[in-house]
Design a protein around this nucleic acid. Structure first.
Length: 327
DNA sequence: AAATCGCCCAACCGCAGGACA
DNA sequence: ATGTCCTGCGGTTGGGCGATT
């Protein structure tokens, strides 16, 4: 079998698109939907290869594309997300509604990169050469390579932190304000995690003081039905850093979450954990940003009565029980 | 006014990987 | 199991355009 080339070399137009071509492409996609790019040019009467059509649509003609200058907020998000994802432009673009990967990539290469270099910050590592071991500014993230992450096992996540992670994911689904209350308060179950806590110590705490109870759950439940406030009655040990595992993978849609609040990445049991800066528990900026991010994402909220019933139906309040339920 | 330079960004290229026959 | 199709991704290119000489 011979693979047919993606684009017939002869007779295909290249270069800038004309208005007429754009109209043909728009009309075709509006009528037939996206996809089938390979056969689209013939059907739409375009002398372009399918790939070129797909790109033109995705990067320019799509109706939901936001054009114009990048706002300061968007730029901050790009820097933060780049610190986490590197040159994964599509991953970054997914967190910036209306912006395409191509657009972000261009903006990074032509503007942001240069600005970082000017500030003496390596755009690849987001670190300052003067202080290679520390980041010059928390607002530009905490990138670590895989080796570093895998070796960084000195700090381990407590079961309570894991539980909180589950709550965080669940909070996204049921009501975003719940999550901001929980996190803003420092979390209900964060009293035993320190950077030097051993795995066994973590496991030991599983069934003791960090075990959630019905009261805690009821508060989470209450949070889903009452407006967010900055106060909370959750207990909190200010010395304990909060940890949320895989927050950028598992809560992948938390668009624009600022990594400035994050301290470190640690690995435990094949899971990566992002440690929040200790000050987050008393950091209203953090709470505000998180709340804002979550509220922006309300289109995906699936808050309804069935979830409330479900949470009331949890009868196993051991960590494992809750963990399984949330899992 | 003309030539040159440098920047920006739309578009292209090659590759990778999942889906499918 | 294998090969092709199809799509998506990241890196690169080159044309347009404004700024500078």
């Amino acid at each position: 079998m011979v693979r047919t080339p993606c684009c017939r070399a002869e007779g295909l137009k290249k270069g800038a698109w004309t208005q007429e071509e754009d109209q043909k492409l728009i009309a075709y996609v509006q009528h037939h939907g996206e996809g089938g790019w390979r056969t689209l040019p013939d059907k739409a009467g375009l002398k372009r290869c399918g790939k070129s059509c797909r790109l033109r649509w995705a990067n320019y003609l799509r109706p939901d594309i936001k054009r114009g200058e990048f706002s300061q907020k968007e730029e901050d998000s790009i820097i933060n997300l780049h610190a986490i994802h590197g040159n994964k432009w599509s991953a970054i673009a997914r967190r910036l509604p209306g912006r395409t990967d191509n657009e972000i990539k261009n903006h990074w290469n032509t503007h942001i990169k240069k600005r970082l270099i000017k500030k003496g910050i390596d755009p690849l590592t987001h670190k300052s050469p003067d202080h290679p071991e520390t980041l010059p500014d928390k607002s530009i993230g905490h990138q670590e390579d895989d080796d570093q992450k895998s070796n960084n096992n000195k700090s381990l996540a407590s079961p309570s932190a894991r539980f909180l992670n589950k709550v965080a994911r669940f909070g996204k689904r049921i009501n975003h304000s719940a999550l901001s209350i929980i996190i803003g308060s420092g979390g209900p179950f964060t009293s035993h995690t320190t950077p030097t806590t051993s795995a066994s110590e973590c496991e030991k705490s599983t069934s003791s003081s960090s075990t959630p109870n019905s009261s805690n759950l009821q508060m989470i439940l209450d949070a889903t039905t009452t407006p967010t406030t900055s106060t909370s009655t959750f207990s909190n040990d200010a010395s304990a850093p909060l940890m949320y595992d895989n927050i950028f993978d598992d809560i992948d849609d938390m668009t624009g979450f600022s990594s400035r609040f994050l301290n470190d990445i640690v690995s435990h049991d094949d899971e990566d954990f992002l440690m929040l800066d200790e000050s987050c528990s008393e950091n209203t900026l953090f709470t505000e940003e998180l709340t804002m991010i979550l509220q922006e994402d309300t289109t995906e909220t699936m808050f309804n009565d069935s979830h409330l019933k479900l949470i009331n139906e949890v009868d196993d309040y051991s960590f494992e029980g809750i963990d399984n339920w949330f899992g």
